[in-house]
Design a protein around this nucleic acid. Structure first.
Lengths: 163, 163
DNA sequence: CACAAGCGAATTGTGCACAATCAATTCGGA
DNA sequence: TCCGAATTGATTGTGCACAATTCGCTTGTG
């Protein structure tokens, strides 16, 4: 088994994986948000939805899905709960009945104040310098953009089959 | 509402969050693994467990939990499935009946060959240079280490209540 | 109008992920 | 020896996360 050429399985060692620390780091970040968001009565995913709404007031479901990289199977129940909590409303677009318009309520708007100090608090948990935050931000977005593009090519690329 | 001092809510904009691209990037990475791991008959979490076993042959449940940053509520069903698939065995440590010893089977060992090319393939999906991979790796581990330390301080810190 | 094609969402099923809780085991004293 | 505290890990309940499927709506074509 170990008579292979040396390093044949080096890439499989956990220490040599780039993906694992990113994956573990993301989970750890969500966990750091936990206590702060509990005060707001939100989960991390619900908080992401609220971030978008605090910025735009209204958004259609399709755009929300694209912005947050979440599909409808995830968003539908999340939006139902936030609607149930009175933080947003869901209504069909009169112009196109397929589209769902999500709108921030007054109660949802009030949460914005409480939430304002959360990002800084969580950033402090991570122990990175400003410069490191900047690097991490750019690297994550660069990888994200590349993978996003790949996905589009592979699903939209069906047309390429026929030349 | 917008009469606040300018920038009071800047930190709440999705674009200004560092956490979001890391979170989205991690999910996107797991998705990129999908097709490759499907050939192996593994999910991403199951693959992580196998990575550890391919390296160490045996591991106790506590160490696995710490290495992968996963608690028993997550690991127990994952290990059950991998046991059911014949890739590992679970047995109690004779010396300490609380400990669970997880052992790679011959069938599990065979999967290692198929898996050997997966890391490189996924790395290619991310579109980063070698240098960028190195940076991302270091930044993620640095943040991870800092948050890990914080967690220990806060749970072990119960004793501080009594002075 | 009729109808095929394709999109937007909802539903269903599987598998994490973790908090909270509980049970069993071990260990440290008195 | 026996009791109390700490550790390990299994269970339960909630909430993502996504693939696959389904259904209603819109749009393009004749």
């Amino acid at each position: 088994m170990e008579n292979e050429r040396p390093g044949a399985y080096e890439a499989l060692k956990l220490q040599n994986q780039v993906c694992f620390p990113v994956y573990a780091c993301a989970k750890e970040i969500v966990r750091q948000y936990g206590p702060f968001l509990k005060d707001l009565g939100l989960t991390y995913t619900q908080y992401l939805v609220m971030l978008v709404l605090w910025e735009t007031e209204t958004v259609c479901s399709r755009d929300l899905s694209k912005k947050l990289h979440l599909d409808y199977g995830t968003l539908t129940p999340v939006l139902k709960r936030l609607d149930g909590a009175g933080l947003l409303t869901r209504e069909r677009d009169p112009g196109d009945e397929r589209l769902l318009t999500i709108r921030l309520t007054e109660e949802g708007r009030r949460k914005k104040e409480q939430a304002a100090r959360v990002p800084h608090a969580v950033a402090g948990c991570m122990g990175l310098t400003m410069e490191e935050f900047g690097q991490l931000y750019l690297l994550a977005y660069k990888a994200l953009a590349h993978m996003e593009k790949r996905n589009e090519e592979h699903t939209g690329g069906k047309n390429n089959v026929n030349g």
